[in-house]
Design a protein around this nucleic acid. Structure first.
Lengths: 364, 364
DNA sequence: TGTTGTTATGCAACCGGTTACATGAAACCG
DNA sequence: CGGTTTCATGTAACCGGTTGCATAACAACA
């Protein structure tokens, strides 16, 4: 009894008059109202004079309801301004309608248009995209991924993030459909849609050699994939008797300025490459600007090759020779895979090599 | 006693043989297993020999548990490989830890770095970002926003999207903290962090006039904000006796190529502006490229002014005169606002003008 | 008219957590 | 040493939906 008294004293929240004689008053209502107050399916049901189940069916299997009921429910929904709580539904159905996109950065990233396409494609099917930015810190990436898993997405798209073996194993253990894109890992977690960075490096090297350019410079970010292209470029060049390429790298994302200054430093240091291979078109753009400034002719004195075939590549002067990756094809295949998994269909070939194309324009 | 027996009989988990004599068999188990199977808080609790509540407290108020219990729970978590289901928790707490970012596009958008910063800042507090891409279609934007609301985010960040009055009203009615960024609407939904596009247009116009340039060309995307800058630029110019600026617009996002071709067309059509004002640095970049091609001197013959102070602006040749918006300050204030709202603190000044800066470099 | 389907709905048991309140044990106090 | 706190934990009622099963009302059929 005494605790009861102390309880009454401790709780004079709102109006609450008349708390007398309720010998075993059960839990008073929870405090934290959601912003939605009581605009729930239950309220709609009461107003429409039907059960919660019927309102639920109004949304999920409208065909079951009679014309009359359907109309009453619809009215009630309007009156209340009801918007279904997708979280609550997801708890039962085990389908959150969430797709996680894990990506190092969205600011001027080569991947962002892929994410854009995937998001568009999936939005049409009612999915929303959860964004997880990993930066280039591995430990941080791990935490981001685990946090994402806690939200039980229906799918995870990994793009450009490098995860350690343990995180990959944990991810596999969740059994969440996972798609690695823009790469073809040796040991995929689940599905993969990408291309071989090694082949890209080799193809560019062969092109350079075919044009008789042997002294080369690589300007690259330090991402694992960019370095892989660089490695195979180097290997192919030296394999054909060319001298090992010079290498300038920088941390983080590629920018126009970083790349431009990298080239400037190299030239000032006495470097005289016949060809510069950049890890991104953005970098190539910076290189072209610097060469222009110095009055060096492209490609006669120095050829330039980029990566990505970004929207401006064809419009540069000279137009940029680069490697085109069909990002929207990756996006499309990725969306398709996710939908197949959602429908529990078998996927015959879970690893898709989307290929790439060396687009030879005037710069090299 | 009987329930015990029936329980034993009723549960021959697999193989479902022997369904005899269960007169009122209760609901068989639900079909759709989640990917996580039964790795739930309940399982952990059983293994650790405690109640679900205790496991929950292990995560949410670890201080309450005894050293011993805490250790046992932790072990059980490890053994099970348990990852808490944030959705389930959110249902009770009414805090989803989700922040929705509504934005027209992330591919090469001036806003994407703001989203990036906000995401980083909020990730540290345990929030995840839900991405909603609206495109430039109003109806589509409306649907995206409503779909987002169904997920009950703890906050909504509106950037660059234009919503009709009804959608805005609905959004206000949800009482979800909403921040409009990169703009200062007349009638904000809730909070706003931005700057006046009209003032930007006016400032650029005054700068042009101060340098004696009267014949101008505006190359702009058709977004509401870009047009607003254009409008006030025009008004200020004509107000000072200059002729009305010529105007080239294009739909969708600004690209290097679109902008470059727009200028080319204008010049070919006989236009002879003294200054070109672009709605984006990307566009200005294209303009500079075209002027270079034609051997037109910048800024002596034609000056160029951009918008955004993107990372390459200072590195162009000539370096680009542009309007700098402190996107990370917007992001920081936005994150701060959201956290304040989450903690139910009062916000003294809900509309923040972050200002802008005209950065005069060599191009104009 | 009794039987058997259909249809449209309601009932209530979940989903996987959180948390107000209850409880038992140990610590503290005069 | 009885009474009061404090501490650690358990119990069970939610959160807001979904859905298997039951049922009532009718139509169709023999």
């Amino acid at each position: 009894m005494i605790p009861q008294v102390s309880l009454i004293i401790a709780r004079p929240p709102r109006g609450d008059e008349n708390p007398l004689n309720s010998p075993k008053r059960k839990r008073s209502k929870r405090p934290a109202r959601s912003y939605f107050g009581d605009r729930t399916i239950g309220k709609v049901a009461v107003i429409a004079g039907v059960s919660k189940a019927t309102v639920s069916r109004f949304f999920n299997s409208p065909g079951l309801l009679s014309r009359d009921t359907s109309a009453r429910v619809e009215q009630a929904i309007q009156r209340v301004g009801y918007i279904p709580n997708l979280l609550a539904g997801a708890l039962t159905t085990k389908r959150t309608g969430l797709i996680a996109a894990v990506i190092p950065s969205i600011a001027q990233s080569i991947f962002s248009s892929t994410i854009q396409s995937v998001t568009d494609a999936l939005a049409a099917e009612g999915y929303s995209v959860l964004l997880a930015l990993t930066g280039s810190n591995d430990e941080y990436a791990r935490r981001q991924v685990m946090s994402v898993v806690g939200r039980r997405p229906d799918g995870i798209i990994l793009t450009g993030a490098s995860l350690d073996a343990e995180t990959r194993a944990q991810l596999r253990a969740t059994r969440i459909p996972t798609i690695e894109t823009w790469d073809l890992p040796d040991d995929p977690i689940d599905l993969a849609v990408g291309f071989s960075h090694a082949k890209v490096g080799a193809a560019v090297a062969k092109h350079a050699l075919a044009r008789g350019r042997k002294r080369t410079l690589v300007i690259s970010a330090t991402g694992a994939r960019a370095l892989e292209r660089c490695r195979s470029f180097t290997q192919t060049m030296t394999g054909q008797g060319a001298p090992p390429p010079a290498l300038c790298t920088f941390e983080g994302t590629t920018t126009f300025g970083k790349s431009r200054r990298a080239l400037a430093a190299h030239l000032d240091g006495g470097g005289r490459p016949e060809l510069v291979f950049c890890s991104s078109d953005i970098g190539a753009h910076g290189v072209i600007a610097e060469l222009h400034e110095r009055g060096i002719r492209i490609p006669d004195d120095i050829a330039v090759i980029g990566f990505g075939d970004l929207d401006f590549a064809a419009d540069l002067a000279p137009s940029l020779t680069t490697v085109k990756i069909d990002g929207s094809a990756i996006a499309q295949k990725t969306a398709e895979f996710l939908l197949l998994r959602a429908r529990k269909k078998r996927i015959a070939n879970p690893i898709v090599d989307i290929g790439f194309e060396l687009i030879v324009r005037s710069s090299g």
